[in-house]
Each structure stands twice: as C-alpha cells, then as structure tokens.
Design a protein around this nucleic acid. Structure first.
Lengths: 306, 306
DNA sequence: GTCAATCATGTAGCAAACCTACAACGTAGG
DNA sequence: CCTACGTTGTAGGTTTGCTACATGATTGAC
C-alpha cells in the first residue's frame, strides 16, 4: 500500500512546484524528495512528474494523486487533532464502582457535579464490595473505584493500579437508647453484647471478626440503615461508620469507641488510564463530595452533639 | 506526523480484537504489531490499548484513533483506486500539435473519433511546423505531435521522444492546365520554371532548396490551396503533397515526378507519457484517419486518374 | 490445584529503507 | 558564452522494521 511519506513528497511538490522548495518545506534535501517521487512512480507503475525546463511538472496522474494525497493528509491531520483534543477533554464514558455507603453518601453528589461540569462525559455506577471493586477495576470493567480500606483487613492493590486516600471514616458504636453503655467505651467491653453485623463475606463482617475474635453476631444485615432499625428495636448493637449515618433514627444512641476504629476511603484507577482527564476530574469531584459530607457531619455534630 | 503502518496496525487490532489475529491479517508477527502500537502510543503520548485478560482492549482514545484510521485508510484506498482507474482510462486533456496539412486533412477526423469514443477526453490542437512541434512536444507544451519528416531535411528527435511512422505522403508536381510538362518528369527538368514555394524558413521551402539547389522561387505562400490558385492563374508551378490535395481546382494538372519525392508523416510523444492510454488512443485514431484519407485518395485516383 | 494452551511483549540480530553529501547533467537568462 | 539554478544519480552511515525466540500473565480443563 502507498506510503505516507511519498504522498507527502508528492503533495509538497504539487504545492511548491519545485523539488527544492518541497524539500525545504519537508525539512530534507531535494534528493530525498526526488527519491521518494521515483519510488512512488515505481510502486504505482505510473508517471507522476515530467521534466519541464529546469524544473518539473506533474502529469495528470500526478495531479490526480496529489489531490487524493491532500485528502489523505487532511484525514491524518484530523485524526491527530481529534486525538489531541481528546487528550485534554473530559469526555467519553466513565464507569465507577463503589462500596455501598459511598454509593449513597458520596457518588450522587460527585456524579452530579461531573455531569454538570462536563456535559460530554457520560457516567455509570456499580455497587460492589472493595474486593470485587478492585478486581473489576483491574480487569478494566470499570474506570474508577471507590473503596473502603480497613487497616485491620487491608486491601492489596495489584500492580498497575494507583490509589489516593480521600480521608478517614470513623466508626462508632450504635446502641439502643436505653442501653447501659454511654460516653466512650472500648470494643472489648462489648464482646458479650448481642451483635448486629454485615453478612458473612462482607468486608465489614470480616473486619469485626478480626477486631473482636470469637464474637458470633445474631443478625447479618447488609444495610446500615436496617441495622439501626434493628438497634432501635432493642435487638442488639452494631458498629457503624459515620459516613453511613446521614441521620440517626429515634431509639438509638451513639457511643464513641476508644481507640476509634476507622477505615480509609480511597479512590483507585488503573495507571494506564491515569492520563485521562475524566479520571482526574472524577477524583476531584469525589474529593469535593467527601469534603462536603465531612462538613455536613461537622455541623451536625456542633448543632446536636451525639 | 503519524505513520500509516502504525495506523494500519491499530486498525487491524480494532478489527480483529487481538494482536495475534491482527498480525495474521497484516502478514507479520504479533510482535511487530505490538511494537507498532507501542511506538504509536509513544509518539502520540496517549494510551491506546489496555490489557484485558490475556488479550487487550482499546481505550477510548484508541477507539477514537481507530475510527479516524479507518477514514485515512479508506482515503488511501480511494487514491489507489483512482490512480488505477486513471491508468487504463482515456481521460484528461490531450493537446496535439500538427503541421498545417495534417491539421486540415487528418486531425478533424481523428479528434472527432477520439471525442466520440472517449467522452472523458478533452482535446486541443495547435498548428506548427515540425521543428516547433517537436520542441513543443519535448517541452511538454503538448502531448502529441504530428510531423512531416522529409528525408532530405530529416528531423532530429530529442532523447525521450518516441515516434512511429503513419505512412508516406507522395509529392507531385502541379502545373497550369496548358503547361508543356505532362506524364512523368524529373525535378531537374523543372529547374528553370517559375516556382511557387512555401515561405522562407518553412520546412517545405527548406526541402525544395535542398533538392533543387539554386532555384529562386518567385512566390512564397504557405497554404497549398493558395499555391494551386496561383498555379491555375498560370503564374508558376509547385510541388504539392497529395495529402494537401483533397480536391484539384480547375486550371491545374498533376505531373508525376520520378523519382517520387515523399515525406514521412509521423506521430511523436514523450516516452514519459507513453503509458498514458490517451496517447495510444490518439495514435490509433490518427492511424485510422490516415487510412481513411489514403483510401479516399485511392478511390479518387481510380475514378478520375490524374 | 495443577497443567497446558493462549496471548502479549521484550530482546537480539539482520535486512531494508531513508536521508545526507557530493557530483553530474541539463536549462534559463544575462 | 558563461553563470546560476534545479533535478537526479551514487555512496555511505544511520534509522527503522521485522523475525525468531524467550518471558510473563491469564484462562480453562482435568
């Protein structure tokens, strides 16, 4: 198939009328241009140029090919321009995987912000636990992952996956209003309570088993909101991260723990996609969302301390 | 600027989903495809592909560039197709230079035939003497030359100019009806006649000076038709090629010469343009025109011998 | 779980292509 | 007639591109 360099040479000669000027425009010697033309003629089996005085002139076939060359080169230019534009535009489709609480407390804000600031970006959201999320990210099923990373059951990030910390999410004990515990306590003192926990296999359950070995929860419920309803009904106690507590139902009370358990909330992406503007924009949107949620919690705490 | 080979590699990978299949389609090893992709990524500063299981998958930028690559490659294909079509199509513009008699006796028929058989061809005609015609051809001002080549004043064809003989045009003596000469004579016997000749510098004049040294024509007229009118008026005699004698006015008579002077009628073109179908078509049309003119002369001779 | 099949990619080496410098040739214009 | 200009050929060195082979990673089956 025709070579681009030869087409460029022909087009330059067609534009500048002389091999010398063409070579000048192409930043090479006229000899190189001449050789390219000769090879193009040999390869196409067509006479493209003819001598004309001490210069040369394109034959009809040469003019024909030069016209087409212009279209080809224009298409190449367009391709480069489109790629360059894509390089610094937040565009395309961005699918995010996030753990359940983040899906409720962080992602709605962040995705809304992304959509309004970058109309060319289309987004998607998948809820999954951090293990599944990290795997989906690594496999390329999603572009961004929001993960909860518990120090006592730390995630292992595969090679090629980068991550940054969004912040720490503190965990409190939540008990029925009339419960004996109050103020600040330690987890160890709660060992003999009736426990409400996440389903087996869930990272929160896994974490609880690790910080309170031997505990056997009576209830296994995924949603913290449901857990709090069970607590309000006096059926047991649970540890609930603050991010999951946008509101506190009647009949429950928060008891601080010491030392305070906490989980890291991180955003992760593939290093291969790190340069994509949409990734950076999404990370910023998530950070803004996190800050907003933190501020909201702070004001609630000030107005109505637990 | 982007290289075509790399675009081809990307497009193949986009089409065949795997480097292995792409290499197969491109008749090279997967390693080559992989290297091309890597270089394309390096050159564009963009991530185009990402690992996906044991295969790979195009990023959005990769898909974008692949779409553009398809357009570029399509444009290249079109260029090749157009060139191939041009290679065996009688098309474009063909300018012919011819000596005066050919302009009248040959070219109208030939150009008409060309125009009707090849509607895509546009033609032009310039009258010039063979020296000028050969020069114009050589310089590329015209594409085809019809020349009268007198053995006694033979043309010199420059390098790069090819020619074929169309046929021989015999020359007779034309005298007033009541002239003493008749039947067959020799040029030498006419030395002392009053001569009508072409203008000085014209190849016909040049030829006459060479075959009859010392003769001093009293009349110098370019058009043979006018020469015959002068002959009919009894003002002198002239040598007139048969091609120029489509009809014989009253008051003149043809006298054969021995040996018969004659000129070669040739068609010439630049070797660089020899492959152009329009050149071949024009040569055939001229040959057909010549044959037609010869046949017409033959039938006239039979019906009304000179 | 292990093993084999599949696919991408890195490395070394060789062949081809490309460009530069220089010289030769032809042409245009004073 | 001679000089300036422009193209084209040749030799040489450099770059590029490909193949063959080995490596690493993943998938699916037994």
């Amino acid at each position: 198939m025709i070579d681009l360099g030869r087409l460029r040479a022909l087009h330059a000669v067609a534009s500048y009328k002389t091999v010398l000027a063409a070579g000048d425009a192409l930043h090479c010697t006229p000899s190189a241009v001449s050789q390219q033309l000769a090879k193009l003629e040999r390869e196409t089996g067509t006479t493209l140029v003819e001598k004309d005085g001490r210069g040369l002139r394109l034959t009809e076939a040469g003019q024909l090919l030069a016209r087409h060359a212009e279209r080809v080169l224009a298409a190449v230019d367009e391709a480069e321009a489109a790629l360059a534009a894509h390089r610094d535009t937040v565009t395309g489709r961005l699918t995010v995987v996030a753990f359940a609480t983040a899906c409720r407390a962080l992602l709605p804000w962040a995705l809304h912000r992304l959509a309004s600031e970058h109309p060319q970006l289309s987004t998607g959201l998948i809820e999954a636990n951090p293990h599944e999320g990290l795997d989906a990210l690594h496999r390329g099923h999603v572009d961004l992952a929001v993960l909860d990373d518990w120090p006592e059951a730390a995630l292992r990030y595969p090679a090629g996956v980068a991550h940054v910390e969004l912040g720490w999410d503190l965990v409190d004990l939540v008990v029925p209003s009339g419960h004996r515990l109050s103020g600040t306590t330690t987890l160890a003192k709660c060992r003999d309570e009736r426990w409400i926990a996440a389903p087996v296999g869930d990272i929160c359950h896994e974490w609880l088993m690790r910080v309170l070995p031997g505990v056997q929860p009576d209830f296994h419920v995924g949603e913290f909101e449901t857990q709090m309803t069970l607590i309000a009904a006096g059926l047991g106690i649970a540890v609930i991260p603050r991010l999951a507590r946008t509101s506190l139902p009647d009949g429950v009370r928060v008891v601080r723990l010491h030392p305070e358990p906490r989980r890291r909330v991180v955003v992760a992406w593939r290093e291969a996609a790190a340069a994509r503007p949409a990734i950076k924009a999404a990370e910023q949107a998530l950070r803004a969302s996190w800050d907003q949620a933190s501020a909201a919690r702070a004001s609630r705490t000030v107005n109505a301390p637990a």
